[in-house]
Amino acid sequence: MGNTFHTAVPLLQTGRLTLREYRRADFGAFADHLTDPESSAHLGPSDRYTAWRIFSSQSGLWLIDGAGWWAVENSHTGQLVGNVGAFFREDSTAMEIGWNTYRAFWGQGIAIEAAAAVLDHVFDVRREPKVRALITAANVSSRRVAERLGMTYEMETELHGKVIQSYMRER
Rank of each mutant, 00 (worst) to 15 (best):
H76P: 04
F30Y: 10
A114W: 02
D47L: 05
R127T: 06
V140H: 15
R127G: 03
P10V: 00
G82C: 02
R148P: 08
I97N: 02
P129A: 07
G98E: 01
E170A: 01
R53G: 07
L11N: 01
K130S: 15
Q108F: 11
V163G: 02
L63I: 08
E170Q: 09
F87A: 14
N100H: 14
T4W: 06
F5V: 12
H76E: 14
S92R: 10
A71P: 00
T77D: 01
A114V: 01
S141V: 11
F30G: 02
A71R: 00
A115K: 06
T157L: 08
S92E: 14
Q13F: 05
D65H: 15
Y102M: 01
E113R: 13
L61T: 05
A31L: 06
E154K: 07
T157R: 00
T14M: 07
R143S: 10
R169T: 11
A111V: 05
E90S: 14
E147G: 04
R126S: 09
L19K: 00
L12I: 01
T50H: 10
V118F: 01
V84G: 09
F87T: 02
I110A: 07
A94M: 12
G98P: 06
K162N: 15
A137F: 09
G78Y: 03
D47K: 08
L80T: 12
F27C: 11
G66R: 13
A8S: 14
V9E: 07
